[in-house]
Computed example of a mutant assay.
Amino acid sequence: MITYRDARAADALPLSAMARRSFVETFGTLYSASDLATFLDDAFGANGLAAQLSDPDFTVRLAIDQGEIIGFAKMGPVTFPGEWRPDAIELYQFYVLGPWQGHGVAQEMMDWAIRHAREHGAREIILSVYVDNHRARRFYQRYGFEEIGAYAFQVGETIDDDRLMRLVI
């Protein structure tokens, strides 16, 4: 049975391991080993995701199956370049491991993200998604997210073409 709860500092190591696994499963073939290692260390190392678990500006929601973290969503202040509404919130990372995709985990996590945004006074959710991640883009579009621009997402020395999307809530 899958359960959901907010992450705690004690979740740092298993959450970072799950995030690394999910990113490599989904995008690992797109990058050189050095670019991938740099990104994984920056995003999911001690100064990345783990440090944000104790930062009050961020909230991380976990999906857990039999004691294993199988998915997570991270929300916080919008950091994309440009001017954003003060009542906007960013959905930074939204990961579900492959074996649990298609089993309702992503829907439960997105429903939580929208509730969380509303409960914290947000009027819109902003995210970026890799241009060729068609499955994720279709998922976000089903929830009403619309493309609002392009974003250069850096993975090591590689610059990816991401799309910014917004959901007005």
Rank of each mutant, 00 (worst) to 15 (best):
G48F: 02
T29N: 14
A43P: 14
F27P: 10
T26A: 10
L53N: 10
A46T: 09
G28K: 12
S16N: 14
V24F: 02
A33G: 07
G48L: 00
D41N: 13
R20L: 01
A33E: 14
Q52E: 12
S22V: 06
Q52M: 07
S32Y: 03
T38N: 13
E25S: 15
L40V: 00
F44G: 04
S54T: 11
S22Y: 03
A37T: 04
V24W: 06
L36P: 08
R20P: 06
L53E: 08
A33M: 04
A46R: 10
A37V: 01
F44V: 04
F44Y: 14
G48P: 13
A37Q: 10
E25T: 07
L30R: 15
D55Y: 02
D55I: 02
A17F: 01
L36G: 07
F27Q: 07
T26R: 15
F39A: 03
A51N: 08
S16Q: 14
L30F: 12
S16I: 00
S16H: 06
V24R: 14
F44W: 05
G45V: 00
D41Y: 09
G48C: 03
T29L: 13
A43V: 03
L53Y: 02
T26I: 00
Y31E: 02
L49M: 14
A37R: 14
S32Q: 12
S32L: 05
S54N: 05
F27D: 10
E25K: 14
Y31C: 07
V24I: 09
L53F: 04
T26Q: 14
E25Q: 15
D42M: 06
E25G: 10
S32W: 06
Y31K: 07
L49Y: 04
A43D: 08
D41G: 13
S54R: 05
L30W: 09
T26G: 10
S54Y: 03
R20A: 08
M18V: 02
A17T: 12
L36Y: 09
A43F: 08
Q52W: 02
A46S: 12
F39G: 01
F44M: 07
R21D: 08
L40R: 11
N47T: 09
G45Q: 02
A51R: 11
R21T: 11
D55W: 04
D42I: 00
G45E: 07
G48W: 02
A46G: 08
F44I: 00
S34G: 09
A43Y: 07
L30T: 06
N47V: 01
L36M: 03
D41K: 15
T26Y: 08
F44R: 12
A46V: 05
L15P: 15
L40T: 03
L15H: 11
A19F: 03
A37E: 08
D55V: 00
L36R: 12
E25I: 00
T38R: 15
D55T: 04
L36I: 00
D55A: 04
L53A: 02
M18T: 10
G28A: 01
F27L: 02
L36N: 08
E25R: 14
A33W: 02
F23H: 13
A46W: 00
F44C: 01
A37M: 05
E25M: 05
R21K: 14
A43E: 08
L15Y: 04
Q52N: 13
V24Y: 03
M18W: 02
L30H: 14
L49S: 05
L49K: 09
A43S: 11
S54E: 13
R21G: 07
M18P: 15
L40E: 04
L53I: 01
S54K: 08
S34L: 07
V24C: 06
